[in-house]
Design a protein around this nucleic acid. Sequence first.
DNA 1: AACCCGGGGGG
DNA 2: CCCCCAGGGTT
Length: 375
Amino acid sequence: MASRDSRIARTLLEWFDAAARDLPWRPPGRAGRRDPYHTLVSEFMLQQTQAARVAERFPRFLARFPSLAHLARADEQDVLAEWSGLGYYARARNLHAAARAVADLPHARLPHDPDQLTALPGVGRYTAGAIASLAFNTPTPAVDGNVSRVILRLEAKDLPLAGPGTLAFAHGRATQLLATEPARASAGALNEALIELGATICTPRSPRCEACPLARECRARKLKAQARIPRAKPPARQKHLRADSVLIRDRAGRLLIERRPRTGLWAAMWQAPTLESPAGPDEPGPTARQLPRLLHLPGLNLGPRPVETFTHATTHRLVQFRIWTAAAPRDFAPGPGPAGDQPREWKKQDQIAMLAISNPQRRILLADRDSLFDR
DNA sequence: AACCCGGGGGG
DNA sequence: CCCCCAGGGTT
């Protein structure tokens, strides 16, 4: 089978050379080496996130944190602020911590060895393999969801993508491909080609086999099984939540904001004072009279009804937001949030825009709110 | 092994 | 609009 693997590797490398998308973390025209720091940042951003979306944010992140040393020196809240809207915010904290760990290394350089890379916070087996191979051409696999799917189809292996044997199988096959003559000196290019093929051609649904360079080698295609490989997983269960957010404006036009607890959803990010509670048919949620007490906002008078509602969906929850408004009374003295460790501050909208803030809170705090207070 | 952690795109 | 995607850390 060595010749089949050689054909696959050669075909992948030629295809990638001709068809690779132009992405901001790749060297232009595939000439020159990849910058290790750029690779670190982009691989963190690419965890669970599509390349097109990362491409919108990567240049801005680099402009703000131009080098690993800059990132290591930065304040965590500023890194989180720059990450706002990208989701999975633990990635931002881990990236910052990883930059600090590398900066503390003897030469302050990223290791070439995947095992040493795995020791960094937020760097698992995939990310370590990606950085090692893409930035330093270390001959090691980088198996993400794309690569697993491509290999399962290529070998007509009827396994679920997240199944226990899948990663080991894909890892083994990727290692064999990397050992072929055409790929031996091009580990980074081969890994990136596999990822690129999965992202652009061998997509989860409706794979574009007519455009696939590996169509002739693909065993799933031969069996017309590409649509059912990999096997589907059961859907995730969504938890229904309510979030009552109170917009409080003082005489200077500033809004009251608080920081969320350091763990859990939207950890350590800023928001309007918000109470989360279960949502459901027999869960009416707090009333306008109850909310000020529950949120430690003594003396506040809310309007009788929310001024706006909307639904925010994440993978595992459906959050029904209700926005309330109030003008701060003259002697208003808000305490810390109910969780105890939630400091509160008054800020203008243009200052809030610079903070670490989730998408729903961005919608709540940064929209034009004058009309809401007029009601 | 099961669960937590966001957000956007595709059919 | 519903359905889908998927890496790392924690427990």
